[in-house]
Amino acid sequence: MDNEVSSSAPAFDAADPLAALPDAARRVALLLRDCGHRKPVVMLPATGKTSAEAAAGLGCSVAQIAKSILFRRCEDDRPVLVVASGANRVDEHKVAQQVGPIARADAKFVREKTGYAIGGVCPIGHLTAPVTLIDADLLALDSLWAAAGHPHAVFNLSPQELVALTGAPVADVALRA
Rank of each mutant, 00 (worst) to 15 (best):
A153V: 04
S8T: 06
D77L: 12
V62P: 02
L127E: 12
A129E: 13
A168Y: 09
K39Y: 12
A55V: 07
A103T: 04
G57C: 14
V90D: 06
F109M: 01
K113Y: 00
L139E: 09
P101M: 07
A9Q: 09
V99K: 10
I69Y: 09
V173D: 11
A25L: 07
N156T: 01
T128E: 14
L18V: 00
K94W: 00
D76I: 02
N156V: 01
R111N: 08
A52S: 13
G57K: 12
L81E: 13
A15Q: 02
V110M: 05
E53V: 01
V170E: 10
C122S: 13
A96Y: 04
R104C: 03
R111T: 02
V154K: 09
E92W: 04
G48H: 12
I134C: 09
E4D: 06
A52M: 15
G59P: 15
P17R: 04
L175R: 13
H152I: 00
C35R: 15
R26S: 11
A11I: 14
V90P: 04
L162T: 02
P151Y: 00
R104K: 08
E75Y: 04
L32T: 13
A147I: 01
D172H: 03
L127T: 08
V42Y: 09
S7L: 03
C60V: 14
R27Q: 14
A168E: 07
D16M: 00
L18I: 04
A54T: 13
P159W: 14
K113Q: 10
S61L: 07
G115R: 01
R89V: 02
C35E: 14
S158W: 00
S68L: 08
L141R: 02
K67G: 08
A29D: 14
M43G: 15
F71P: 15
V131I: 07
I124G: 02
V41I: 14
V41M: 14
P123H: 03
R89K: 12
L44A: 15
A164Y: 01
V163I: 04
V163Y: 01
A103C: 03
L175N: 05
H37Q: 15
D77F: 08
E92G: 11
A147D: 06
M1S: 11
Q98L: 08
I118W: 06
I124A: 06
I102C: 05
T50H: 12
V42I: 15
L31C: 14
V110W: 02
L31W: 15
V5W: 05
G100E: 10
K39H: 13
E4A: 05
I118E: 10
A107L: 01
T132C: 13
S51W: 00
V163T: 03
V90W: 00
G120A: 05
R33G: 15
L18H: 03
R73M: 09
T128D: 08
V163G: 05
F12I: 13
S7R: 11
A19K: 06
A168L: 05
R104S: 05
G57Y: 07
P123F: 03
R111A: 13
A103Q: 09
A14R: 12
S143E: 11
L18C: 00
V110Q: 03
